[in-house]
Amino acid sequence: MYDILVVDDEPLIREGLKVALEMEGYHAQTAADGKEAVKIVKMTNPNILITDIIMPEKDGIEVICDVKRFNPNIKILAISGGGRISAQEHLKIAKQLGANSVLAKPFSTEELMFEIKRMAEHAN
């Protein structure tokens, strides 16, 4: 059973993703910002981190850098809805910093599960 942490400042998304993941049989927990996410990762050491990029307090890029330092094996899926620059640009940066997979919002649950399964296989 994979443990997944979903980090997004948008409650609709983090809760929605949690429901969708649990429907597929994963164990999911959520964090509302980057700081909380790092704290949870340190405490519970999840297998997979799904993180948004643009967030208040601590953004996704910082979260990736931090968690990779103390948990290099964690699999990270970066998700972004874009902003001043495109979602693709954000995700490109995230990938360069160590994200294993990326998805531009809005994505379907199918795409999400595909990426989760791919990362899980690689983890094994």
């Binding site: 609709l12 429907m23 994505f107």
Partner: peptide, 25 residues
């Protein structure tokens, strides 16, 4: 669009996930 894209995509994302969950159920 640059300014609202992020928020808009987030809203859409949420709606899409819940809709998909609902459809599955």
């Amino acid at each position: 669009t640059g300014g609202i894209a992020h928020d808009f995509n987030n809203i859409l994302m949420g709606m899409q996930i819940y809709t998909e969950v609902l459809l599955k159920k």
